[in-house]
Amino acid sequence: MDIKVNGKTHNLVVDNDMPLLWVLRDELNIKGPKYGCGIAMCGACTVHIGKIAVRSCTFPVGQVYDDITTIEGLGTPSAMHIVQRAWVEHQVAQCGYCQPGQIMSAVALLTKNTSPTDSDIDNAMSGNLCRCGTYPKIRAAIKTAAINIIQEKHTMSLIGTSAEGDSNG
């Protein structure tokens, strides 16, 4: 079976029902998505299939229907995604373990909705647990990222390019 992760195609020999999380982590050594609960209750394993945020711990690899993006495909320390930059600006992370999942959920939200209200944020983010309690900073970072995305789109349109590349990684 072939799957495409962060732009790269991988050939796999695993059980079809192995959750995507364990394919990424233990077969492909892509360690950004984390194991937290294995039952879609914590969001630590969140990745994108296409543009949709999914809990990879319960998503069988055999059912993957589109390209996969993980936190590693979003941005890198020297070229961070706009949402990651907002996270750093607000110094969101504490232990950091939940943050790849939080960021992937936030990016999926902001892709659909560039000006989320507090209740939009509640709806999109409440599946992501953070035992360190970084929620107030996550909320603030999402709002900052939303403003920055709109501003960047505006700047890009003035100079005649699209901001798509940045907001989608």
Partner: peptide, 15 residues
């Protein structure tokens, strides 16, 4: 700025 912040926001911090 925390020393571990960028790593933790880019999935590159090693647990």
């Amino acid at each position: 700025p925390r020393i571990d912040m960028v790593a933790k926001c880019t999935g590159t911090a090693e647990f």
